[in-house]
Design a protein around this nucleic acid. Structure first.
Lengths: 337, 337
DNA sequence: AGACAAATTGTTACCGGTAACATAGAATAG
DNA sequence: CTATTCTATGTTACCGGTAACAATTTGTCT
């Protein structure tokens, strides 16, 4: 690997002059510049970023910490984030926390160690605050995506969870559903809470029957929807909810896959709706009725906010961007009498 | 940001001793180790990887260069690659080349500049060889995924394209299809060639009618399937293929989406099959009949090969891993008389 | 106790860049 | 024609670690 000294020697100048040529520093004689550029080309010289970072304190490296790229929602975030990062000359390290706080901690520590310039992240839950504190301690700018953190002031991009939930509930209500179940994640996640609150609010506002039993809270990493399904199967048909709201696409896919296995049919036996499309691209014959969030924009805009902050282009106060959701009616819901 | 010298001063030892404690170097007195560890904790010291890399010549950073994370096939590769990388203590920079050679070049150059230890990549096409040469020049280990490169010897993971194509064609043939169209990408991509060859071979072997007209080659980035559909619509029903083989999931989704818009129905008017699922997770009511490749394994195993090579655990000869494909029959195909 | 080996810790130099300051030669001014 | 200011380039030191070697302390053995 050629170093700046190799180039310097070959061009018969000092390393400093080479450095100036590379960073189009001031006052280089044309003939010198040409000689240096020739040497650079001949040696295929590429500057060593570690050495540069050691001085400049920046790395042009950003970190994207999401729970799982395989989830199309996060895939789109990742794609959006990478697009903006690339646009601005940054590169992106990505990590999957799998909703696991230890994994999150370890990723954040290595990101800091690597000297990343900033981080775009979806915290696994409120306990992630301890991890955020590492970032704060090291003065590393960060932007939250999709989930806020109790008591943490920061730039953030997310969707309108209350309104999204309401859209889903409205749709079910308009289709005759009155007993609506709720399958969701751990309440340490802000959007789970917000969606849960909106769900309860809707039930209250519309004086729907409420039975704690039909609310099922599960781990987002290994969703145990089967036990919920067993509960459904044990209940008499009249007691059963006629529709279920899932707070998350993966949960919904898992739920319906398992329902099929157990002989419960969607939407004939029960309607199912959820947040976020379970597929990244537009598909013919899509199944789920969803409230979709502009995940790509989450990533793209979040990254933009992050870079603005890194480059000192944002004010002291923190920005919050809330995107509208869009109801897409498909095959997983059905009108009932 | 605390440095090793800050820790050293606080613990009343030399920087070297701190370094030894961190890397559990030999012979440190227990009392010293404790004192140093205390100082590390108190200062929240995290070693600076740029400084370490400058000496060690490694960065524990790997690069994953794929064409598009948003494509579920690549999403799964990314997830598999990240899992293995994390297991082995590496972090992953990811980039989307979008089948664009210039983008690929620029990504590779910055990866080299960054001092990545190795690269896992899906080259955009045979012209990517010039980019591979940069890696070779800098002696950076790499592993190819999904696509090989004419005349380049390297570690590689991919699926069995010929057999996969044959499975798809067999399925169509068994369902009565005789005139089968082919929608594919540019022939500079190895798997496109292999699938195309297998397609032609099948037609020859089974003495099926062949009409060049029903083979459509398009850019994988902006797929212009509409013009193909217009061709179909112009032809009389008898001349039209009764089934189409797409060499790629995105192409198939785009094709069918556009067909729906134009009033051609799948599978009633025409059957469609393709390589790779257009969704990353198992979905109820999936639409496409596909030949699936174990994309996650592509990423996971590819990364394993890469790390083995980096760490000098692989022999001189290059390894090629070929995975079997799996035919999954769903709704996009139909038996005809 | 003295000699030597082992254990523990320190010193120096260097990795590959660049900031800050220094210097030589050319251009401009008086 | 000398003083002064640019212009172009070089020198030195340092970023934060660690390898290699040096020095000191402690332990072991006869």
């Amino acid at each position: 690997m050629a170093t700046i000294y190799d180039v310097a020697k070959r061009a018969n100048v000092s390393a400093m002059t080479v450095s100036r040529v590379i960073n189009n520093g001031s006052s280089i004689k044309e003939s010198t510049r040409l000689r240096v550029e020739k040497a650079i080309k001949e040696l295929d010289y590429i500057p060593n970023r570690s050495a540069q970072s050691l001085i400049s304190k920046d790395t042009k490296l950003l970190s994207l910490l999401i729970t799982d790229v395989a989830n199309p929602f996060f895939t789109s975030i990742a794609r959006g984030a990478e697009d903006k990062a690339h646009e601005k000359g940054y590169q992106l390290v990505f990590s999957n926390s799998d909703e696991n706080i230890e994994k999150e901690t370890s990723y954040i520590r290595s990101a800091v160690s690597r000297g990343i310039d900033g981080m775009l992240l979806t915290p696994s839950g409120d306990f992630s605050i301890q991890n955020i504190n590492i970032l704060t301690k090291y003065k590393i700018p960060f932007v939250l995506v999709d989930r806020s953190l109790k008591g943490i002031e920061s730039d953030i991009v997310h969707g309108d969870n209350s309104d999204g939930t309401k859209k889903l509930m409205d749709h079910l209500f308009e289709n005759g559903h009155r007993t609506i179940g709720f399958v969701t994640g751990p309440s340490s996640i802000s959007n789970v809470r917000e969606r849960g609150d909106a769900y309860k609010q809707f039930i209250k506002d519309n004086k729907l029957p409420f039975n704690e039993k039909w609310t099922f809270q599960t781990d987002l990493a290994r969703m145990q929807t089967l036990s919920y399904i067993n509960l459904l199967l044990e209940a008499s048909k009249e007691d059963r909810p006629t529709a279920i709201l899932c707070s998350n696409n993966f949960l919904a896919a898992d739920l319906v896959n398992n329902m099929n296995k157990m002989g419960l049919h969607v939407p004939d036996d029960i309607s199912v709706v959820c947040f976020d499309d379970p597929h990244a691209i537009q598909m013919p014959n899509s199944f789920f009725t969803v409230v979709n969030q502009p995940a790509y924009k989450f990533g793209y805009t979040g990254m933009e906010m992050l870079i603005d902050r890194i480059e000192g282009k944002s004010g002291k106060e923190h920005k919050e961007i809330v995107y509208d959701t869009e109801l897409i009616i498909r095959q997983s819901t059905k009108k009932i009498n």
